[in-house]
Design a protein around this nucleic acid. Structure first.
Length: 555
RNA sequence: GUCCCAGUAGCUCAGCUGGAUAGAGCAACAGCCUUCUAAGCUGUGGGUCGCAGGUUCGAGUCCUGCCUGGGACGCCA
């Protein structure tokens, strides 16, 4: 537990005692005691609305209740320096300040550990994200999903969840047949044969490239080959090359997966039929119009869904249900799927399926990634200038840079529409929040370098008592908020809270920097401040790492 | 038509489990570099929180209806 959480717990416990001994409420009437951090510093380090919550139970005015509570409160036991009753009945707590230096001490004692918690209690969570079809290039929306998904996983990991990252490869359906036929057509064209692209074929240049590769490696041998064999080869070849490309793009975007799960493997390992049997045995299916239906309306879907079409083949849903069953069989207690906005209508049926298989509704969470609109020169850009197609993730990385792209995508709540300002993301200026945060880190590194030249080094045992100025304390407090921010952002699946935090922390550092000098004639003060900025640097670097952004030592 | 998401300052967005005077950044205006990085700091102005009801000590936050924008509504994936 972090210092701040420990303090809050102490205050909570003492408040609980005070309420009992003041006779304001019995144990079973006790509300959840909420300790919040006021926005306004004059309202103390912490505050509680407990007196207002008790108004009904105690049948007294909140301010009078607050008087009773504070009169019975053991301030010493909760490290409280002073209390104040304010507004409609808030109790404000001004804490003894030594907890602030404890924060810095904790960071310095175990830098790589700071912010880590056991909030998740080792719960096995699986996050499935990106999962774009292996038939083309990753685009804007995929990039956002990748950034949000990866940061979320980093967060969950830090907050004590046992997290696994997975990519579901749709390598079994029509789209793969389409890929195969498209590649075949391109190959035949490349060797000068008559061939037409299939209807709805993949027009991308990458397919032409693969065809050329095949020609240069294998020559024209497939020209007269048996169609079935030829197609099997093209299928495997095309799939492998598409996957290589996806992996490379994602890796360059600093996103890696623990598992690349093949849809085809569900067929190969006979994992679909047993799930169908199970649903049938549970009475969740019926036959109608020559098809097999899943009675998803029993679990809140607005209509039933076809599992087996009247031509005998599965719909997309069927293997996907088997896939989710497989995930749960692998021991994951919670599944998080990160899907594009165009899939949100699919949520109720997947949720229904999980429930129909006997699992708890809460075990599946679907996080929707809303659409991204690119803006340049104040105008919406839909298409890439170079290719005329939708803007790809690769283009975005090349043009904007990975740091800015990752930061911008992580910066906003995932389920909100995002306007991505290309000019802002590209600008190396004060307007760009990424550089603002990175600059804070580089600035500290610069101070540490100069300290070293002057014979100072960061002393983990430095006396921190000289850190008494307002800016010193602001910075210590902000650093102290990190563990809770991480745990909270993880629990709420909200990586954007971390970018908000890291921006705040950078701002607090810059403000500190302009008000106080670190390298001074006063050795004791210098050592204390070096310890402080080092703790800040560690926190900045770690938060940036979670977001997927580098922390440069110079800018 | 049904369902989902969004609507907060001129623009882009935060706003935790319902709490104190609704906050940042950008843009506008006024200051701060002989001093550790000015990619920085300090200050000023700017709001019927889409609209209307309701719940309660208290609503941007919860409930109902409506308006606007986006999306989804297939035996496609």
């Amino acid at each position: 537990m972090s210092q701040v959480e420990q303090l809050k717990t102490d205050v909570k416990n003492q408040l609980h005692q005070a309420v009992i001994s003041a006779g304001l409420a019995a144990e079973e009437e006790m509300p959840d005691i909420i300790i919040e951090t006021p926005k306004d510093k004059s309202h103390g380090d912490f505050a509680t609305n407990l007196a207002m919550q008790l108004a009904r139970v105690a049948k007294k005015a909140p301010r009078a209740i607050a008087e009773d509570i504070t009169a019975h409160l053991d301030q010493e036991a909760a490290s409280i320096d002073a209390v104040d009753i304010a507004g409609p009945g808030f109790i404000n707590f001004f804490m003894k300040t030594d907890y602030l230096s404890d924060i810095i001490q904790t960071v310095l004692d175990a830098p790589e550990h700071y912010g880590r918690s056991n909030a998740g209690e080792g719960k096995k969570v699986q996050v499935e994200f990106v999962s774009a079809n292996p038939t083309g290039t990753l685009h804007l929306g995929h990039a956002r999903g990748a950034a949000v998904g990866d940061s979320l996983c980093n967060l969950l990991d830090k907050a004590g969840y046992d997290v696994s990252r997975e990519y579901y490869i749709n390598d079994a359906g029509n789209q793969i047949d389409n890929l195969t036929l498209s590649l075949e057509a391109r190959y035949l064209q490349a060797v000068g044969a008559e061939a037409e692209m299939p209807e709805d074929g993949y027009q991308g240049k990458d397919i032409i490239g693969f065809a050329d590769e095949i020609v240069s490696t294998y020559g024209e041998r497939f020209r007269e080959a048996e169609v079935e064999k030829r197609r099997a080869f093209f299928r495997d070849y095309g799939l492998k090359r598409e996957l290589d490309k996806l992996k490379a793009d994602l890796e360059d975007f600093r996103v890696t997966f623990d598992e690349w799960f093949s849809e085809t493997s569900l067929y190969d390992e006979n994992k679909i039929q047993p799930v169908l049997d199970e649903l049938k045995a549970n009475g969740e299916t019926y036959e109608a119009d020559g098809a097999t239906w899943f009675r998803s309306t029993s679990y809140g879907d607005d209509k039933d869904r076809v599992l087996i079409k009247n031509d005998g083949t599965y719909t997309y849903l069927t293997p996907d249900i088997a896939y989710h069953k497989d995930k749960l069989n692998r021991g994951f207690e919670e599944l998080i799927n990160i899907w594009g906005a165009d899939h949100h209508g699919y949520i109720p049926r997947m949720s229904a399926a999980v429930q129909a298989l006997g699992y708890d509704k809460e075990q599946l969470t679907v996080q929707i990634i809303q659409m991204v609109n690119l803006f340049e020169n104040g105008e919406k850009v839909k298409m890439s200038k170079r290719t005329g197609n939708a803007v790809t993730m690769r283009e975005l990385m090349d043009e904007v840079g990975i740091d800015a792209t990752r930061y911008f995508f992580a910066m906003r709540a995932a389920e909100t529409h995002l306007d991505f300002d290309l000019d802002l993301a590209k600008s190396e200026s004060n307007e760009n929040p990424v550089y603002y945060v990175q600059y804070a880190h580089a600035r500290i590194c610069s101070m540490l370098r100069q300290a070293e030249e002057k014979g100072f080094s960061v002393d983990r045992k430095a006396d921190l008592s000289p850190l008494t100025s307002e800016k010193d304390q602001d910075l210590m407090k902000k650093i102290g908020e990190y563990p809770e921010t991480v745990a909270d952002a993880a629990a709420k699946h909200a990586p954007h809270r971390l970018t908000n935090y890291v921006y705040d922390l950078a701002q607090t550092l810059h403000s500190f920097y302009n008000a106080e000098k670190v390298l001074t004639e006063d050795q004791t003060l210098t050592k204390a401040r070096l310890a402080l900025v080092e703790a800040c640097r560690i926190t900045l670097a770690d938060a940036l790492r979670v977001v997927g952004v580098e922390a440069p030592e110079r800018m």
